[in-house]
Each structure stands twice: as C-alpha cells, then as structure tokens.
Design a protein around this nucleic acid. Structure first.
Lengths: 219, 219
DNA sequence: CATTTTCTGTTGTAAAAACAACCGACTTGT
DNA sequence: ACAAGTCGGTTGTTTTTACAACAGAAAATG
C-alpha cells in the first residue's frame, strides 16, 4: 500500500493531508488493497458494498449491460479517482452497475462506517477526511450532471462536440487523450459505433478536429 | 417558516429529528425563506450560491437551455426535496442550470458553511444533520445515475418505458402521476414532443399502458 | 361567456441513427 | 512468424427521429 501514497496525496479525499497523515489514516480506516487483472470485475451488479474505493493504479470502467447485451459506460475511473461513494448510505441497496478493470489495476478499499464515524482514538485527520468526502461527492454530482448535459444532446455530432469540449476543458488543452477506444466511446455516449466513426471522420474532413487513436485535437 | 416544519420532518436532511430539534436547527443554521410565483427563477445559470435549499411548497424544475433554445429538464423538485447541494463545495464555480418555479413555491435556504462546520454552541443535532446531508447527496447521486440509465436508451419508446417503470417503482404503484406535461416530459427525456406523443399513443394502442393527462397506468 | 392561449395528438417529409456486413491495419498470443 | 482476434473506417439499407404545420380539446383570461 505504501507505494500508492503519492497517488493518494493527489486524491480529493485526502487533499490537505501530508504523507504521514495519510499513512496514519490508512491504518485508522483499516484500508485494504485489491488487485485486478485486465478484464476482471471489481464489483458486479447486484453485489452489496459498504466501501468507498480509490483507484491506485490502472483504469476502470463503470458500466451497465442490459438484457440485450447493449453496454452503457457510465464513467471511466483513473488513478486517484474515488468511486462507490454513492452506496455509502446504509439504505442504499445493491450496486446497480459493474466495475470492470480495463487495465491491470489496484484498488484501495475504505469501510464507509469508519470514515463517517469519528474514530475511538479521535484521530485528528478524520474530520478533514469527512469534509473532503463530502466535497468529493458533490464534485461527482456535478460531473454526473455534466454527463447528463452531454447525453441530452440530440445528435451524435452534438454529443461528440459536447464530450470532447468538456474533455479539452478539464484537461486544460485542446490536445488531449480520452480513456476510450471507439467502441467504448460509443458505449459511453450511447450511440452506434459505426455512425459515430462516420461522424468523427466527417468532422475531421470539415476541419473541426484531428485525431489519431484516442488522441484528439480540437481546432 | 413555522408552517413548513411538517414538510421538513419528512426531508432526508432532517430525518431522525423531532419537531423541536428542527426548530432549533432553523435558528442555528439561520435558515431563510424565499417565495416565488409560477414562472419565476429561484436560481439562474451563472449565479453563485453557497446555500443548500429545500423546497417547502410548490414545484420546481432544474433545467438548462442551450444557445438554440433547446430546453433540457434535468430534474423535477417536489416538496421536501433538497437541491443545490452539488454546489456546496467552495471550489465549485457558478451554478450551471436554471431553477424555475413551475408552480407558486416556497424555498428554505441554509448556508452550507454553517451546516458542515460545527456550530459554536455545539448544537447537538448538528452531527446528525451532517450525516443526513451526506446520505442525501449520495442518494441524489444514485438518482442521477438512474437518470443516466434512462437517457442512455436508444429509442424514444425505450426511454419512456425506462422512465415510467422507474416512476412506478419509486411511487410503489402501477398507477401514478408524473410532474410533467408532454412538452416537459419530452424535454426531460431529450426527445421530440410530437414523436414522443406518437409513441405514447402507439404504446397505448398496443395495450402496454393507459394514461390521461399526467396520470399513467402500466399494464 | 367569449376569446385567447395552452396542450395534446396527428400527419407528412426530411434528416439522422441504427443495423449489418465487410475490409484492411494493427495487436496479441503461441 | 503465423494465426486469431481486435480495432477503426466504409458502405448500403432500414428504422427511427426531428421538424414543421395543423386541428380539436381543454384551460386560462378578462
């Protein structure tokens, strides 16, 4: 777990805490480490969890598959990102999505109850972590609303523009990489892959953007 | 404000608290009341707020209008519902959506800082409220993901089925009302009104459901 | 009560997306 | 190095949606 402390320091959940503080918290919160090979599931729909998780290494997709095999990717999780916090509340039922490792990954688990309850030893970082958790969830909330904004676009082109603009903005550059290949991007935007591929090339021909693999540049 | 205490008692934010406790909290948190006529805006895109709000009476829509006048309704807010909590974090910028009163409404405002900071008088309900707030946000989070599930449906019919099923489930009956007229439902699902109206009637003719105005029954 | 406005359903047309099938380039694994 | 599989782009067809325009019913207004 030690080797992931630098990643944790950049996590919203631990922002404002130093290396030593985090080490103390890992113990205090009884953090556990899980590793997953590419293609393995961290969580499957219907399972229950009382954990908040942070991705330490690799790449995850949060997704749902319907009865007809149509896949819908809800979110991509990168190192330092937190997930599972929506199921923190005791009354929240089983998880409603799959969490798939799309690369070999390492995940750190924290028991929610230990995070939101003041610990017996009154560890002094605890209150900071609670507030961080709160801010992290509200940030996740805004992210979901932004995704709704993308999904509410009527045409594939508009969805692409909305998504790519957001990505450029959040990465602070008109040149950026996305955590998806074409099929995954289509599943993320809920459109047909071939139609999307078509649209992307048309936009490239019109001079709106350039791309190569999962690297894009908006013009 | 006194007359809205029964509503507040049913709010997730104050669950587990008695009438007296809530009265104490209203003071402790310096709650303010705002009233809005039908058609007025509680918040407009670009404004900043450090408040968490609870709808005491009436009906609100959280929505966005794009440059082309295309409206997208993100959520309907009913009495007892909380909103604005996503902008609780200090680093969250201005609000990204409009909050419109679709009926004459009353809204109670709470300063976020006062909620998440322990009050000087160490009011004993405070810690309960913080935990409730946390659970309420994570519940909102799950609701947003469910909406993403609806929006990720490819066809208008699938969106309708997904939305109406969720509504039936959450209202615990196959007969239920929705907080939208046809145009609003279309804006909520991001589809064309006439196409949706068409699809609804076709589904009715096929015996999938019945409806009259905003009242539906799934068969 | 008459008038205006809003709401809902209907129809026809044009645009867009889904679907299916295929191909060549590139990876992966053995 | 070869076979198998993945990935991205292309094309043609079918289905679905968006758009526009209209009409009757219901609701709101004065």
């Amino acid at each position: 777990m030690e080797k992931y402390i630098p990643v944790l320091m950049k996590t919203r959940l631990f922002s404002g805490l130093g290396e030593e503080d985090i080490r103390a918290m890992l113990t205090c919160l009884q953090a556990r480490l899980g590793t997953y090979k590419k293609g393995e599931y961290v969580l499957r729909q219907g399972e229950r969890t009382g954990d908040i998780m942070v991705l330490a290494e690799g790449q995850l997709h949060i997704q749902r598959d319907d009865y007809w095999g149509n896949r819908s990717i809800i979110n991509a999780v990168s190192p330092g990102d937190m997930f599972g916090e929506a199921y923190a509340a005791p009354e929240s039922g089983p998880v409603q999505s799959d969490v798939l490792a799309v690369e070999d990954s390492a995940v750190i688990f924290f028991d929610v109850k230990r995070v939101i309850t003041v610990c017996p030893s009154a560890c002094r970082f605890h209150s900071i972590a609670v507030q961080n958790l709160f801010f992290a969830i509200s940030e996740k909330n805004r992210r979901l609303v932004r995704k709704l904004g993308v999904m509410s676009r009527r045409t594939t082109r508009e969805k692409l523009i909305a998504y790519l603009s957001e990505e450029a903005k959040s990465q602070g550059s008109s040149t950026f990489s996305i955590p998806f290949n074409r099929q995954q991007l289509a599943d993320f935007l809920s459109v047909d892959r071939s139609a999307m591929s078509n649209e992307l090339c048309r936009m490239r021909d019109e001079g709106l953007l350039e791309f190569e693999k999962n690297r894009f540049r908006l013009l």
